[in-house]
Design a binder for these strands. Structure first.
Length: 492
RNA sequence: GGACAGGUGGCCGAGUGGUUUAAGGCAGCGGUCUUGAAAACCGCCGUGGGUGAAAGCUCACCGUGAGUUCGAAUCUCACCCUGUCCGCCA
């Protein structure tokens, strides 16, 4: 989330940054935001003058009543009689304008860092030569990971489809154990070598956490949700109208939790008998769903760990790592990567999150990328690193490195990690700040996140890079201790 | 899921409609005293916003949101969270 004051101070920088990202009308957006802010401040200024007058008068009324001076009290009461209405109107206006501005700001993506290359899509990403590692293994007629896994009898997509549908998998035997070994190896490396604290976080979270890291409100269709409970809203809290011409149904919520209800209303109704077009609809009720979200990445619970807090600079950087399942709806990916384990509705990942100061964050970003690469180096898997161009970066990122591992079976590099510096963007959404050495609040922290690494794709990479001519798969030496000393995986 | 009790500054804690501008204490910072320290004493000590060149003036915030009132930490309603007991449960 952007700071409106920062936009006001540097409108051109804001417009230039968003234009670099590919936004067509950044100038108009900036003007609209600044205009909304101006209107809000005008309302505030007027309202506060009225509030100050009311406060003074109320104090005097209190004194007068204590002195039994009913005449003076009455005079003062008459004086402020009209003020109450105006103040309430002003407060309502303030709420509305603040909410409007907040909503408008909530969907604006982060500004790319100055050293991010400009471009429209992944073709404009720029390799980081100094971070390239390894050589492609010479494998004769390499197989793809699902061919290898299925031939081993330890990877089963058909049964997963029977039970859960497309984009799920069963791993069995040594492959199931290998997944666990990979995760344990990653966690041990990050905690022991890089000082990350291992965390086992919640994987179901509230709206507010998803808002904090930027998945909501814009990317709801990528998420899965649970239905924790549902509620039928009666006529005291909702009015339902059916348009007799178009048949369109309109719902208006009222009462003290109207705003919450509006937010939780997903367009479902409960009917206790058929209704005809007309004005009164007493037998149709809106259904409110109270739900949790399934995390698409552990970035969400790890980053939100510090939401709403003021941290001491001395305790930064905060480094956390977690091994969790991740759930993604993959809306809009229909037909892409349909075979194999590359794109799943459920996969596991070891995540890295750092909370730092603005001064530290660029260095921390490099360090985090080092930590992620260290895993691939120890596994001796060839890979390259690219700096994402402005058009390919995620919503909350100001700079992102993708790590792409070589997959002989696919004869290509595939993303296995994405390390992003989000700057103060998420911290502002979460309201996480820090106190400097002098004890003064010194603004929003910077947040960073990166995969360290995607466990499923790491397993894919091992299968394809360590495949043997006889159909077995060699186990990388660093994983052998985690596999009970085994050196290879074979059919049985 | 049921019953009850709670939620006040970094922490503890007082406060049931009107000089509350949130008492008091602890911790922290500065000072006096001291050779130095401790003690004692004095002062400072929340966040965000509006306005302003600044000093300052001012508004909001006592779990969250709405409401009653000239005036709300205090009264009303809803929600969230915590604790204890009961029930269920890996």
């Amino acid at each position: 989330m952007h700071d409106i004051k920062a936009i006001a101070k540097d409108r051109d920088g804001f417009v230039k940054g968003l234009t670099r990202r590919g936004l067509a009308d950044a100038g108009a957006l900036a003007d609209s935001l600044l205009e909304q802010d101006k209107v809000l401040r005008d309302v505030l200024t007027r309202l506060q003058i009225q509030q100050a007058r009311r406060n003074d008068a109320s104090k005097l009324i209190g004194q007068a009543k204590q002195n039994k001076d009913e005449v003076l009290a009455k005079t003062l009461l008459d004086e402020v009689a009209g003020l109450k209405d105006e103040i309430q109107k002003g407060e309502a206006q303030q709420r509305e304008l603040e909410e409007g501005l907040r909503q408008a700001l909530a969907v604006v993506p982060n500004i790319p860092a100055a050293d991010v290359p400009e471009g429209a899509d992944e073709r404009a990403n720029v390799p980081v030569a100094s971070r390239a590692f390894g050589t492609h293994p010479g494998i004769n007629a390499p197989k793809q990971h699902f061919e290898i896994g299925e031939a081993l009898g330890q990877m089963d997509f058909e049964r997963a489809a029977k039970v859960s549908g497309a984009r799920f998998v069963y791993l069995k035997g040594d492959l199931a154990k290998l997944e666990r070994a990979i995760a344990a190896f990653m966690l041990d490396t990050h905690t022991e070598k890089f000082g990350y604290t291992e965390v086992s976080p919640p994987v179901l979270v509230r709206d507010q956490a998803m808002f904090g890291t930027g998945q909501l409100p814009k990317f709801e269709e990528d998420l899965f949700s649970t239905k924790a409970s549902e509620e039928f809203i009666g006529p005291e809290e909702a009015t339902v109208r059916l348009d007799s011409m178009t048949g369109a149904v309109a719902v208006e919520f009222k009462g003290s939790r109207a705003a919450d209800l509006q937010k939780s209303f997903k367009g479902r109704f409960f009917l206790n008998r058929p209704v005809a077009a007309g004005s009164t609809l007493n037998n149709i009720f809106p259904v409110i769903e109270n739900s949790f979200w399934l995390i698409p990445t552990a970035e969400v619970p790890l980053t939100n760990y510090v939401s709403g807090e003021i941290l001491n600079e001395a305790e930064l950087p905060l480094r956390m790592t977690a091994y969790t399942p991740c759930f993604r709806a993959e809306a809009g990916s229909a037909g892409r990567d349909t075979r194999g384990m590359i794109r799943m509705h459920q996969f596991s990942k070891v995540e890295l999150v750092s909370i730092t100061t603005p001064e530290q964050s660029p260095a921390e970003h490099e360090r985090m990328t080092d930590a992620a690469q260290e895993i691939l180096k120890k596994l001796d898997l060839a890979h390259r690193v690219v700096t994402l161009c402005t058009g390919d970066m995620g919503f909350g990122a100001q700079k992102t490195y993708d790590i792409e591992v070589w997959l002989p079976g696919q004869n290509t590099y595939r993303e296995i990690s994405s390390c992003s510096n989000c700057g103060p963007f998420q911290a502002r959404r979460m309201n996480t700040r820090f106190r400097n050495a002098e004890g003064k609040v010194a603004g929003a922290v910077h947040t960073l996140n990166g995969s360290g690494l995607a466990v499923g794709r790491t397993l894919v990479a091992i299968l394809e890079n360590y495949q043997q001519a006889d159909g077995s798969v060699a186990i990388p030496s660093v994983l052998q201790p985690y596999m009970g000393g085994k050196t290879q995986i074979s059919k049985f």
